[in-house]
Nucleic acid binder design. Structure first.
Lengths: 350, 350
DNA sequence: TTGTATGCGTTATCAA
DNA sequence: TTGATAACGCATACAA
């Protein structure tokens, strides 16, 4: 291994001088500088960042803890993190908790999860990462699972009650509000909602957004149009069937994720309704399969990459100890409607 | 920050002794050991792995270079890598090249790619990773893009001509062979093939597998049943239309990926053929959308997680310098057919 | 402008 | 069984 010492000897200068030219610190004479640079190139020298980190007490490395990398949100968030990490000169130490697999094996033991996280965070502390980004599985409160730590930590796709912690999420309420507004703009007045789990934060926020839009446009709020599913295809399917058996048919259905939206389309088809001609449908999440379905699903896309971009940028500020402008901040980014083929104006019947 | 020095002072022993109890090296008296352990717990000491790495010339960290993490193969490969990394006590330093985005911006400049990789690998050298796993975008030869390096490196989801390099891939030929056999086992004799790009390694291997199966079962090889697409939905769609316009209709279609398979189903439907009753279809890749389609797509799943598991295990052997049993090895793992609803026996017409 | 010397937090050699 | 001390490769205060 080539070290600064080797360079120094070969260039007949001191180690300090080598360090000066490498870091462009100090005032080094033009000719010695040139000489040193030559030798560096000649020996193909690569600085030892481990040694540098030890000395500087800074690794320029961010620990990224992902609850489950195989879940749809993770890759794009990580992609965003990577993009800005490169710009900022930061490295990413990735830990994948593989929560879904673990939790399905062992029962959903909250203490177990806490232990796993504790172990991972201890490891990151030992590795001397400058900061931590925690990427959740779905938007929820993880306060109970997170141990105390001195390292700056930031949460995305989840949040904590801890006022000291930053988090970056998307705006569920705005998203549902705009999706509902879109239906209204197309002329729909009877808009049904297929919700996710009732204990989900997202479900509540999206319901709010829906309700806000209904009220704002002075539409009739019809409680029988509100159905609660479990995020899965089957619940979208069966709840839509229920919806289609009521006397006063809705002309549009907002499903809180794409699986349930696809289930809804299937139910419509099976009962002889066409989408979008008879019933318009909007999903949530902009999953890949929506683009391949027939009709192509109109859906609300999540700002995953932007969340990643902002996450690493913010943690970098946190590390640099810049003003509190980003400290203790709970940020929400807005979603964007992807217009495809599952929505059109309601037909003459309604 | 708490260091071994702090522990030593507090426990009234030397730094060396602390090191001994931490690493269970040396012979430490029971009572001093107990005392030291107490202080360690009391002060919540965490070893500084940066210092340790510097001293030991070993980081227990693997650099993982992913050509594009947003592509469907990456998350599961990484998941496998993570699973075994944890077991082996290795950390993962992740670099995402974001090739798809970069390459679409700048034209597909091979030198540019080489430069990017060079830069990333230099960075990993500086970070003193013990080994590198390179995860490709699709199965192809990357020899030209990879600079020389002293660090053990292993390729997965791609390969090099370099005999010194290990690679881990899946067996395309076997996969296509088994998919075709499956059609035959259901009674199909007229089996069409929608291939991917002709310049793709996968396309060739899969074609071989298909051909082998046709020959083995003494079926007529009909060249008009072979169509070459471009991996995309649209090509699956239009090529299937061509197939359905021939006089001698096939009863089954093997598409080399799920997009083209879905395109094929759509084409069948649009021309009034039912899947699987009239035409059976098998896809490739086991993409998520196949499970949500109607009918649910029968498809060949890739052993992505197992590739990741094996990759990190192998690189660990390489690092440990164990015998050459895994050195210079080109491994292929087998694929597995996911039986769903897009295949059934051919109807009476055939 | 350049060089000497010290320390970052470890491990490990050698002596006690 | 324990302790003093020299590295590991680098940055930097201070001296020259």
């Amino acid at each position: 291994m080539i070290t600064m010492k080797d360079i120094a000897e070969r260039a007949k200068v001191s180690i300090a001088t080598v360090s000066y030219v490498l870091n462009e610190s100090g005032n080094v004479g033009e000719d010695t500088k040139k000489k040193v640079l030559e030798v560096i190139k000649e020996l193909n020298y690569r600085p030892n960042l481990i040694a540098k980190s030890l000395k500087m007490k800074k690794t320029n490395t961010i620990g990224v803890i992902v609850e489950d990398i195989t879940v749809f949100n993770a890759p794009n968030i990580i992609d965003g993190i990577n993009e800005n990490a490169e710009k900022l000169g930061l490295s990413i130490l990735l830990t994948n908790m593989r929560l879904e697999k673990r939790v399905s094996n062992n029962q959903n033991d909250p203490d177990l999860v806490k232990q796993i996280i504790k172990k991972i965070m201890d490891e990151l502390v030992s590795k001397k990462v400058d900061g931590i980004i925690y990427v959740g599985l779905h938007p929820r409160d993880v306060t109970e699972s997170i141990p105390e730590t001195d390292i700056p930590i930031l949460f995305t796709y989840c949040y904590t009650k801890n006022q000291e912690h930053c988090s970056i999420n998307y705006n569920d309420e705005q998203a549902a509000y705009e999706a509902t507004n879109y239906f209204v703009s197309k002329g729909h007045k009877k808009i049904a909602l297929i919700s996710g789990h009732i204990d989900s934060m997202s479900s509540h926020s999206r319901y709010s957004g829906y309700y806000k839009s209904i009220k704002k446009h002075n539409l009739l709020f019809n409680p029988t149009y509100i159905k609660t599913g479990d995020w899965r295809f089957d619940s979208g399917y069966s709840l839509t069937k229920e919806l289609l058996e009521t006397k006063d048919l809705p002309t549009a259905i907002l499903a809180m994720n794409d699986q349930m939206a696809i289930g809804a389309i299937r139910a419509c088809n099976d009962l002889g309704y066409r989408v979008p001609d008879d019933i318009s449908i909007i999903g949530f999440d902009n999953r890949e399969f929506g683009a391949y379905y027939s009709p192509k699903l109109t859906t609300m896309s999540l700002p995953l990459r932007r969340m990643g971009l902002l996450a690493i940028e913010t943690i970098n500020h946190l590390i640099s100890g810049s003003p509190t402008d980003c400290n203790k901040l709970k940020t929400t980014l807005s979603c964007e409607l992807i217009e495809r083929d599952s929505v059109c104006p309601p037909n003459g019947l309604s």
